[in-house]
Design a protein around this nucleic acid. Sequence first.
DNA 1: AGAGTGATGGGCT
DNA 2: GCCCATCACTCTT
Length: 181
Amino acid sequence: MRRVRRADLARDADVVGPFLLNKLLVAGECVGRIVEVEAYMAFDPASHAFRGKTNRNAVMFGPAGHLYVYFTYGMHHCVNVVTGKAGDGQAVLLRAVEPLAGIDVMVARRGRSRNVADGPGKLCQAFAIDLSANGVDACRPGPIGLFDDGVAPPVLPKSSVRIGISVGVDTPWRWTVAGST
DNA sequence: AGAGTGATGGGCT
DNA sequence: GCCCATCACTCTT
C-alpha cells in the first residue's frame, strides 16, 4: 500500500476528483475508502478560493496534497485535498468514505452506528479531523494520509452536480462510486 | 421543512 | 472596525 503521490494531485481538481475515488483516507487507526468527492476549480464561483486568498482559504493556494479544513454552520468541519499548481486555489472536497478500519472508534465519536462517514461533516467527525489538520501534508508521514491500496478508481465514475451550493450549480463536478450512495 | 450553531468576509460607516 | 447575511452540514420532525 503506497502513499498517493503529490504529482498525481498536482493536476486540475476535475481530474483529481475521480482519481481519488477508491483511495484510502487514513487517520490514526481509522481507515476509509473514498466514495464521494467534489471538485472546486480555479475561477469557480462556488469555490472558497473564488474571491482570492484569505486567512481561511490560504492552504488552497499552497502546494497540492495538503489538506484544507474549514469549519462551517457553527458545528461541522469539512476536509479538502489541495490540487493543481501552487497559487491556483483548487481543491477536492472529500464528501464520503466507506469505513474499513477503526469503525468502533468512529461509531463512538459519531454517537451512532449507522451513517458513520457518509457526508463531509460526518466524515470529519468520524476521523476526528478539525482545524488542527488544516495544512497537513497528506503525501508525507503525519497524522492524516492518503493511500492507494491498488483498487482502481471506477472506469466511468458517476458524475453529477454538486450539493449545497448556490452558484456553479450546473457543472457536474461531483463523483461517486457506483452503489455507495 | 426547519432548527441549531458560530466563524467568515464583504460591505458599509 | 462593526454588522450581518451567508454558509461546500446534520439531525429531527
